[in-house]
Design a protein around this nucleic acid. Structure first.
Lengths: 337, 337
DNA sequence: AACCTCTTGTCAATCGATTGCAAAAAGTGT
DNA sequence: ACACTTTTTGCAATCGATTGACAAGAGGTT
């Protein structure tokens, strides 16, 4: 039982398939007489006609599809951004809806290359790369010669792409300022893996404010191998080894913060009395903890909307004078600090 | 700068495009002389030729694409299943790799209908529906007349689809048995929204064991409007209103369990001394809590693998005698019980 | 030399929708 | 009634890869 196609529908109605095509299209519908148009639309609806988008794509050279690359689908913030982008790409009255293709790279450059090639083979109209690493730069630049490539969440050093990012530096600065206002003199950062610009910028913003307010960072910095709660637990050991001991900690994301808090609990340290702590991302977890976690709220909505708009505009006009933007996060103070 | 297509590549090599097509294909490569085949493959690689999959799809009637419908992308378990399915659909030496299209329904039937139509228009080879509700039955049955439809995570009452599910009833039973073994006489369930078969089955399995072991459920059942921690908090009030008071609670998922625990903390009740609690899903959260949560581990790997295999087999042969399977979860006992 | 088989490659049709061009139809003004 | 513009419709080529049918050539057998 083959699907109904446009040729058959046209035959049934006694018109040419060109007329059917025009009647059902958005932009050329005015080329067909109103009466005919309605007749065709009625019939198409009644017969359950559904156009074959692969055929349309082939002919038009436009698939109404964008590829989304993400390093880790387990990351709540990434998922939030993806689903928000979904919403912005989905049907709005004016523009046609866009179907997203998603691929998880797990930060492996060869997987990334393969996935990008698949995207291009499937003729995506654009690619959005969420949280890419510098290892992907060359591949993305290659891809960018065929379709617009937009970056979200993570910038890539030394490469200029249209992008929608969080101002991580400002976020780090907010935390330091907050610590200063609460009178902390000795503080410490638990930094995520430095291969990502995200964590470098958070560190930078934080350190700048510390320097200007003559707050001491001690130990100067603790690097977590991964941005997970397990690494956070281990970080506390390094932190307690120094003297004088810091009174406040900036963990580069909520998972790290949670790890630190758990480790504190095991040692009988109390939060915030013995050690204040602030995380980053405002994940569900942060609201839920026994001691609700102070954290920096990630501007998910803004980043996603801008990424979506960049993509829409660049697809419409590849020479569009895009504007990369940094969105400012906001500090949420809860009990942990 | 138009993309290199097969015609041009063939021209450059002085062979017919048919020969190029066969040389690059997997199943028909033996129809081309080994020397020519290698020459063509080399050239294709060097020139960075990438086949246009929309054209291939149009001609073959096979897109090597499956649509994945999911009710809520914020749900950790759903995401886990999706990414595991990804892995099983991705390239393995034997079969060609399949690109997943993802859509979030938010349990809205009209959105679901629209998304399924998009999938079909894009000629997906199959649809996997994760956690669909009964409202979707008719739409899914419609779709099933065009492509194989596979269910995962949630069954739909009164409709037979190939499916890969968790044996929620067994899971519920395990929890009840566990409570019985620990000597609890009065227990209670905090049940998720009953529109989903998942929660009904968990409740059923639990109650059956309680009945057979003469354990009292008191209050008989508490319904949470949503399966979230907020609802869990409110559930505790209902629970404490009764007398005699239960000594153990089965929350239908970890978020609900967390809510109950938080509410307990606010009232100064201790877990497990005052009230034992077991959740469901074994989310990251459950491991991380101050009192690590006993929970039922969801068989993510098995469910995903089976769903993937069903899809692969049904695509290869629509009349494949599929086997729907229930996978048994396992109880993980931690400090909370 | 005649005949057969097997390999290798070419030709051309095909998948289904879109669109430039031109023909037909309808409308307008004199 | 005629010349004209404008609207509506049809024709046919096109997007790029795949594949059935067939031809040309190579090699083997009697």
């Amino acid at each position: 039982m083959a699907r109904l196609n446009m040729r058959e529908l046209a035959l049934k109605l006694g018109v040419d398939r060109a007329t059917v095509s025009r009647a059902l299209s958005n932009d050329k519908a005015h080329l067909v007489a109103p009466a005919t148009r309605e007749r065709i639309r009625q019939a198409a609806g009644a017969a359950g006609y559904r156009p074959d988008l692969t055929a349309a794509t082939l002919r038009r050279g436009r698939s109404h599809t964008v590829g989304i690359l993400v390093s880790d689908l387990g990351n709540e913030t990434f998922i939030d951004v993806i689903r928000t982008i979904f919403r912005h790409l989905d049907a709005r009255s004016d523009a046609p809806s866009i179907t997203p293709l998603i691929a998880e790279t797990l930060d492996q450059p060869d997987a990334t290359r393969r996935l990008i090639h698949t995207f291009l083979s499937r003729r995506v109209d654009a690619i959005i790369s969420l949280a890419s690493t510098e290892a992907d730069t060359a591949i993305l630049q290659d891809a960018a010669r065929e379709v617009p490539v937009v970056l979200a969440i993570r910038a890539i050093a030394g490469a200029v792409f249209p992008s929608a990012l969080c101002d991580d530096r400002a976020g780090g600065a907010m935390v330091a300022t907050h610590f200063a206002e609460r009178g902390h003199k000795i503080v410490c950062q638990v930094q995520g893996p430095p291969l990502s610009a995200t964590f470098k910028n958070r560190a930078l913003g934080f350190s700048e404010v510390c320097a200007s307010r003559s707050i001491v960072e001690m130990p100067q910095r603790i690097f977590a191998e991964t941005a997970t709660s397990g690494a956070g637990k281990r970080a506390l050991d390094a932190l307690l080894a120094v003297s004088p001991r810091p009174t406040a900690i900036f963990a580069h994301n909520d998972a790290l913060a949670l790890g630190v808090i758990e480790a504190m609990r095991h040692r009988g340290l109390r939060c915030p009395e013995d050690l204040a702590i602030v995380g980053f991302n405002n994940t569900q977890l942060s609201r839920i903890l026994a001691v609700p976690l102070s954290t920096v709220d990630y501007p998910v909505e803004e980043v996603s909307r801008h990424a979506g708009e960049l993509v829409r505009n660049l697809i419409a006009d590849p020479s569009y004078r895009f504007e990369s933007r940094l969105f400012t996060p906001s500090l949420i103070v809860r009990a942990s600090s």
